[in-house]
Design a protein around this nucleic acid. Structure first.
Lengths: 95, 95
DNA sequence: AACTGCTTAGACAGTCTTGTCAAAAATAGT
DNA sequence: ACTATTTTTGACAAGACTGTCTAAGCAGTT
């Protein structure tokens, strides 16, 4: 897992499809200024934005949510000695 | 994983050992008012506090970190349909 | 009752984060 | 070059959050 930036990924996807910020910003109920900052990592993207993001960008919701969550966790906890054990604990208890 | 509260757990442990807030608060470089609020869930406990917490409370660091991280992740993402897949993704890539 | 130590509550200023606005900068289309 | 559209920037007010201080509440002791 690279220290990838989710905002940059969103931006790349959006440009790939030729969709202007205007469209995506509207789906998120923010203005383009806010979306621009999200893409540049200057504003947080919240978990509740993943659905409208996936829809307005026409990308797979499942993949996007997985990517988002994984990156967020790595951002918060990468380098912690027992991160893996914590993840396993959740997986085991969440049966 | 119950919707357990980490602060409450810390508090229970501390009382179990008969350690006053004064001691733990000093280890964390905060005053007892702040620690009280942490125990009651009115202030955040950060990952960097886990080490001094484990030391001042004489509890196993590994267990405490695992518990802290697992609860934090559940707090942020429980209910998300693809949380498990995101955790597996991290575990697979972090070899 | 008074005293001691422990814990909690409320108020507070300081800091950080948020989304918006207006303007500037960059890009594309003609 | 000009125009229209898109994107970024900086400033800003509003709100949330942090740790501290002070004082209150509580239990035990003398």
């Amino acid at each position: 897992m690279k220290n990838a930036n989710f905002g940059a990924y969103i931006k790349a996807r959006r440009e790939q499809k030729g969709i202007p910020q205007r469209i995506v910003a509207h789906a998120l109920n923010v203005d383009t200024s806010t979306l621009s900052k999200m893409e540049l990592g200057e504003r947080q993207i919240t978990i509740s934005m993943i659905k409208p993001l996936s829809e307005s960008l026409d990308v797979n919701f499942k993949d996007l949510q997985i990517k988002y969550i994984a990156e967020k966790i790595m951002k918060d906890f990468s380098g912690q000695p027992f991160l893996n054990e914590a993840l396993k604990k959740i997986l085991n208890e969440e049966v």
